[in-house]
Design a protein around this nucleic acid. Structure first.
Length: 557
RNA sequence: AGACCCAUGGUGUAAUUGGCAACACGCCUGAUUUUGGUUCAGGAGAGUUCAGGUUCGACCCCUGAUGGGUCUGCCA
């Protein structure tokens, strides 16, 4: 038995590609494209598409273009173009010379339209939008022919050129493909392919008074670029007959459109319009608010490009639409950050401890491992002194069974330091524990413990005198229900989760000050965090990316 | 209502193209651990929406039903 390498199962698109390869279709060339409209920021759903399209090109030694579908100047702008380029690059993909814009093809697209008119397959229609809508029919009733449908070619040519020259009012006329008003597929009922829009375009300026519709621009752009596999989401399935019709009429290179199910994620929304609403209505601070499922939001939250790429790999590609558990996304970051992120200590909810048998004024440096998963990351020195902070949760006056942490008369290890014992609990008038008096065992020093003691729990701490204060933003899921957009009665905005806690008075070890904005690290025993761009000279701002898995916390509930 | 698409554990994706369902996440148990993390070992959980048919044999092919999605912009 030869142990040839396991081949990962192919998704249905790869199956299709390999069939094409077997038939030597397109001379075995594989060319995909990622075609965003620059009218918003990219989100995790786009990341799926980016990984798919660029990933296919990599796998089959092909190319993947980045093409901006910029045919609607009303909604598009250069800010979005730039953010999209930055996000794709950040995700780890390169398009080389393959940066294109549908607007680069406006002239060519116009000529193709002329050709379509010339072969009698397109006409200028003077009907109003309402008339067009009425004549289109419905899903059950066929449409009716427009009175302008049989205009002579010459007249169409002349009118279309006048449209181009700006001689008509916006909305007064459109160019339509002449297909079949009785088709059960509404997209084939003489669809509009050009409309008049006297709007300045972010790239072509005032050159054009007419702009092509998606169906006209997209397929032809694919064709012009020699795209072999034009991959898009399911809702374009009904457009495919039109995509094919256009290319067939013009007898040009004919890419194959393939549709797959777009990504849905629990506890969030992934539609550009809804994300825009969140930004515009100030429910979030910006497109890169760390709670946003945008690529820039995930980046700011502390997600690594690798974690997103791995997530995309895990979710697979298919035609069935479903909803993916965010837990899988969270697992993907933990998996990556566990290996990559250095450990530091941070106390989010401090409880002061005075170690009464530790000399006043003394400070010693203890060495701490930076990353147990990567010995080569070495060690750092942490100052230890008489007064320290521990996490409030790490002390209980009346502990339940199997509580491994600190409680009266009990001992725990301070990680990388000594074993301490709780001798006295100090409370305020309200009965709240405000401080602990402890003793430490001088023989229990980490690395050379001769005390012979073995304690069940190890907790994190930070020296009071040496700690830095930080603002820590404990982000939670953006919505409090699994499918906020799925409720028929309530608007998705009603499900926004208000529980993002901001902890102002966290104490963190000094080293955090040396991190750069965007650096990820683990607060031992708590979770993965990163330094936020709001950090200033005198204020550290830290975002929680995701908590650590917590089997104890789960058990308690 | 019509056309088109889809249907496999809680979730997502597989099943050498017809040979009695696998992987990942999540969940549970145990071991290891100076992170109740990681790692390791194990477990529960679907008989493939339903009803027929073809076949020695069906998740896979056929028919019908049911359920879900998409489509009636001069948006993409």
């Amino acid at each position: 038995m030869s142990t040839s390498e396991e081949k990962a199962p192919l998704n249905f698109i790869e199956v299709k590609i390999e069939e094409d390869l077997k038939k030597h279709k397109n001379d075995n060339r594989i060319h995909t494209r990622f075609p965003p409209e620059p009218n918003g920021y990219l989100h995790i759903g786009h990341a799926k598409s980016i990984c798919l399209n660029f990933g296919l090109a990599q796998k089959y030694n092909g190319l993947c273009n980045l093409r901006f579908d910029d045919t609607n100047p009303e909604k598009e702008n250069i800010e979005y173009v730039n953010s999209i380029k930055a996000d794709v690059k950040w995700l780890g993909f390169e398009w080389g010379d393959g940066e294109f814009y549908a607007s680069d093809y406006f002239e060519k697209l116009f000529e193709y339209a002329i050709k379509l008119i010339e072969i009698g397959k397109a006409y200028v229609d003077d009907s109003t939008a309402e008339e067009l809508s009425r004549m289109r029919g419905t899903t059950t009733e066929t449409g009716t022919d427009s009175p302008y449908r049989n205009r002579p070619v010459e007249e169409n040519l002349e009118l279309f050129k006048k449209m181009k020259n700006g001689e008509f009012e916006e909305g007064s006329r459109i160019l339509r493909a002449k297909i079949d008003m009785a088709s059960p597929n509404i997209h084939l009922r003489d669809p509009a392919i050009y409309r008049i829009k006297k709007v300045k375009h972010h790239r072509t300026g005032d050159d054009w008074y007419i702009y092509p519709m998606y169906d006209w621009a997209h397929g032809l752009s694919d064709s012009i670029e020699g795209i072999t596999h034009s991959i898009c989401t399911l809702e374009f399935e009904v457009h495919r007959p039109l995509y094919d019709w256009i290319l067939d009429q013009l007898e040009v290179f004919h890419p194959q459109q393939i549709e797959f199910a777009r990504l849905n994620l629990t506890y969030t929304v992934l539609s550009k319009r809804k994300l825009l609403d969140l930004v515009n209505d100030k429910h979030v601070s910006s497109w890169d608010d760390p709670r946003m499922p945008t690529i820039s939001g995930l980046k700011r939250r502390g997600y690594s490009p690798a974690s997103i790429r791995n997530f995309a790999k895990k979710i697979g590609v298919a035609k069935r639409d479903g909803i993916i558990d965010v837990a899988l996304l969270e697992h993907s970051v933990r998996e990556d950050l566990n290996k990559e992120a250095n450990r530091v200590m941070g106390v989010l909810n401090p409880l002061k401890i005075t170690i009464i048998n530790y000399p006043e004024g003394k400070t010693e440096l203890l060495s701490a491992k930076n990353n147990p998963e990567k010995e080569e990351r070495g060690e750092r020195e942490m100052p230890f002194s008489r007064e320290i902070y521990i996490e409030k949760d790490d002390f209980m006056e009346n502990p339940p069974r199997k509580y491994f942490r600190l409680s009266p008369e009990k001992e725990v290890r301070l990680k990388f330091a000594y074993i301490i014992k709780c001798e006295e609990v100090i409370k305020d008038k309200a009965g709240e524990v405000v401080e602990l008096k402890c003793t430490y065992d001088i023989h229990s020093k980490s690395g050379n413990d001769t005390s012979g003691k073995k304690v069940k729990g190890t907790i994190h701490w930070v020296s009071a005198e040496h700690a830095e204060t930080a603002e820590v933003r404990l982000y939670d899921r953006l919505f409090s229900v699994e499918d906020p957009a799925g409720d028929k009665e309530k608007d998705f905005l009603e499900f926004i989760n208000p529980d993002t806690k901001i902890v102002k008075n966290a104490y963190v070890e000094q080293g955090v000050k040396n991190f750069k904005v965007g650096d990820s690290f683990q607060f031992e025993r708590i979770g993965y965090f990163c330094l936020d761009k709001d950090t200033s000279e005198n204020q550290l701002v830290i975002n929680r990316t995701v908590t650590l898995r917590d089997s104890w916390g789960k058990k308690k509930n």
